[in-house]
Every structure is written in structure tokens, then in C-alpha cells.
């Protein structure tokens, strides 16, 4: 493994992630806007974005905080939104688990929806990738995403109420996630899993702490795996 190929793999990841600028920027700005409108000073808004780095849970926390929910309720609800990332962690382990501990710590910090989804899609499409190439690719996709998340949160916090909250910025995240998942619907097993995920997530939406989504995801993974096993 030469340095030049991992460098080009890094650049490949970086270039592939660049288009996500158009969704990360508005979504992070929206967080900055909503957080300052809810009364958080800029320092705390930035601490949120830089320590948590998970948009959906940051919005969930703000939502509960603006309702003055007990601290433990805020934490439980917001962290439950992030439990899906334990599945990301498990799912990326066969690819990156052999990296040294300090690298796994760094990867964990940057393991957001976009870096996870783009990396595993690439790792599965090119099984011959070495560990170094995989690490380089992951670093590449994380490079534009995470700093932009921080910078745009700041911009949103500073600009504050100059941005109308109903300007469609809320839909940046759904569009980004759908755009990432649609090309991954490669086989009947993938399509069935996605279908089960949607139906059960909607049907179990009433389950508290966002746990319906986790149940839906577990069932969807079982359906996908079972179809793959039968078709093999």
C-alpha cells in the first residue's frame, strides 16, 4: 500500500462528500438559528454542535429543553435518537475495526450519518480496498462534512432570526438521507428492508423515546438478511 493511493482515496472521498455541502450547511445553520432563538448563547450552541455532532438529536434536545422537560428526560430522549449509531458502529467494525485504538476513537467522533453511509457503500462496492484505503476514504468524506457542520452552526447562531424558520431548510436532511439510501437499493433484499423500515417506523411512531425506529430497523435488517440467505 503506497501513500499515493491512500492519498488519492482520501481525495476521492473528499470529492464525493463535497456535494453534501448543500444540505449540511442549511441543516446546521437551522440548528444555530433554532438554538439561539430558544435562548442558548453562541458558546453553548457551538459546544452542542462540536461535542455532539448529531443534528437530529441536537434538535430533539432543543425541542425538549424549550418545553422545560426534566434534564434526564432531555438526555434520554435525545440520546435515544442516536442509538442508531450503535448499529453504524457495529456495521463499520468489519471494515475499520482493525485500525489502532486511537484511530477508532477518532473515527467514532466523526461517525455521522453521511460519513457512515457513504463509507460503507464504497467499502461494499469495492471489497478489495485495504484498511489504509478504507481509513483514507473515511477521512476524506469526513473532511468537508464535520467542519462545515461546526461553521454553519456558528453562522446560523450569529445570523439568528434573519433566516425564516419555514424556508424549507428543515427538508435538507431528509433529502440528503433519501439521496444516500436510494442508490443503495441494489437488490430485492435491500428494497424489502427499506420497505419494512418505512412501514414499521411510521406504525411505531407513537413508541416513546424514538425506540420505534430502532425496532423498525432491527426488523428491517432481519428481513433483508433473511431474503439474502434464501436467495443465496
Amino acid at each position: 500500500m503506497t501513500t499515493s493511493t491512500s492519498k488519492s482515496t482520501y481525495l476521492l472521498g473528499l470529492v464525493r462528500a463535497l456535494p453534501f455541502v448543500i444540505v449540511v450547511v442549511p441543516f446546521a445553520m437551522l440548528f444555530g438559528v433554532v438554538a439561539t432563538e430558544a435562548g442558548l448563547p453562541i458558546l453553548q450552541t457551538m459546544a452542542f454542535s462540536m461535542l455532539v455532532v448529531a443534528g437530529a438529536s441536537q434538535f430533539a434536545a432543543l425541542q425538549f429543553m424549550s418545553e422545560n422537560a426534566p434534564v434526564l428526560v432531555v438526555l434520554a430522549s435525545a440520546l435515544a435518537v442516536n442509538l442508531r449509531m450503535a448499529m453504524y458502529s457495529a456495521s463499520i467494525t468489519p471494515h475499520l475495526g482493525a485500525a489502532p485504538m486511537w484511530q477508532r476513537v477518532v473515527i467514532s467522533y466523526f461517525l455521522v450519518d453521511q460519513s457512515y453511509a457513504m463509507s460503507t457503500a464504497e467499502f461494499e462496492a469495492r471489497p478489495a480496498m485495504t484498511l489504509r484505503e478504507k481509513l483514507a476514504y473515511f477521512a476524506g468524506v469526513s473532511t468537508p462534512i464535520c467542519p462545515l457542520w461546526f461553521g454553519s452552526s456558528y453562522l446560523g447562531a450569529v445570523l439568528g432570526d434573519q433566516i425564516p424558520p419555514d424556508s424549507g431548510l428543515d427538508f435538507a436532511m431528509p433529502i440528503a438521507f433519501l439521496a444516500m439510501v436510494a442508490p443503495a437499493l441494489r437488490t430485492p433484499a435491500h428494497i424489502a428492508a427499506a420497505f419494512v423500515s418505512i412501514v414499521l417506523a411510521l406504525g411505531l411512531f407513537w413508541v416513546p423515546l424514538n425506540l420505534g425506529l430502532l425496532l423498525a430497523a432491527l426488523c428491517a435488517m432481519m428481513v433483508g438478511a433473511e431474503i439474502e440467505r434464501r436467495m443465496a
Binding site: 460503507t120 438521507f177 437499493l185 428492508a193 420497505f195 418505512i198 432491527l218 428491517a220 435488517m221 433483508g224
Partner: peptide, 20 residues
């Protein structure tokens, strides 16, 4: 491993569906 291969298609659609 077979289950984990379906992680992203099992989570992202369900995460987004209510938002849509």
C-alpha cells in the same frame, strides 16, 4: 455480518419517513 449489511437501508428510510 449479513444483518449488518442492511443497517443503512434499515435505518435511514424509517428515520426520514415521518419527516416526509
Amino acid at each position: 455480518l449479513r444483518h449488518l449489511r442492511y443497517t443503512s437501508v434499515a435505518i435511514l428510510p424509517g428515520l426520514v419517513a415521518p419527516l416526509v
